[in-house]
Every structure is written in C-alpha cells, then in structure tokens.
C-alpha cells in the first residue's frame, strides 16, 4: 500500500528539512513548496493526502492558499494543518473557518503534531459512507 504523501508548505528551508526527515521516519512521503502559488500547483499535480501549511509565505500567503483549496473541487477534501509562528488568538479561528483542520503554533510539540496527522489521515477522518447512527 503506497505511503501517504504530505505536502509541506513553508519558506523556511531549514524547518522544511527537519520536518521532511521526521515525516519520512514516520513512514510518510514528503513533497514541498515554498510559496502559495507553487503550493497550489504542487497540490494539483501530486494529490497529497495532507497539507502542512505555514501562514507567512512570500507570495500568496497561507490564507490565500486555504481559500484556493476550499474553492477547488479536487482539492477541497484534503486535510490542512496550519503550522505557523503567528498568534493563535488572532489566527486560529480564521484559519479553521477557512477550512483548516487544525492550528499549531511553532514550535509545535512533535508528538501532538504526528497524532493529529495520523488522526486526519486515518479512517475516522474520512466522511462516513452511510449516515451516522442517530439514537431513535
């Protein structure tokens, strides 16, 4: 079974290098982009299973990317985890409203980040095939 592919979007090349090492060690394939437009192009080309997205990107910031993803038929279902140095108090709600699954502030706890990645990719995250069981 092919390993899930994660797209990491961040202009901090050192951080991207460290994340790539860690994600590979956890059995994920990694592809990267360092600005918003490259991120969308990469997502359309490679169909990642999950996206880790920084907000402070040089061209087309994280919110532009979230917007484009939500408005795309093919890309809207991909879970997006925002990983940003920005203050959650002013950014988390906006990011979640824009379609992000979770918001982590840098530096993130590695364990927690991996747990959320696993949960977002695992069976519980997929939309249910049949309607959920409502108590009668």
């Amino acid at each position: 079974m092919p390993r899930p592919k994660i797209l990491v979007v961040d202009d901090d090349s050192d951080l991207v290098r460290a994340l790539r090492l860690r994600l590979r060690a956890n059995n994920y394939e990694v592809t990267t982009a360092s600005d918003g437009y490259a991120a969308i192009a990469c997502a359309q080309r490679e169909h990642p299973s999950l996206i880790i997205l920084d907000l402070g990107l040089p061209v087309g910031d994280g919110f532009v990317v979230l917007d484009r993803l939500q408005n795309s038929d093919t890309l809207a279902g991909i879970p997006v985890i925002v990983l940003s140095a920005r203050d959650p108090q002013t950014n988390e709600e906006r990011a979640l409203k824009a379609g992000a699954t979770a918001f982590f502030q840098k530096p993130a706890d590695n364990e927690e980040l991996l747990n959320v990645i696993r949960a977002s990719l695992g069976p519980g995250a997929a939309p249910p095939a049949a309607a959920a069981a409502w108590p009668s």
Partner: peptide, 10 residues
Amino acid sequence: RTPLTCIHQF
C-alpha cells in the same frame, strides 16, 4: 519563534 523552532526541530 522562527530560530527557536529551528533549534527545537533539529
């Protein structure tokens, strides 16, 4: 946070 994150990661 940026340099701190780098140190933390590596």
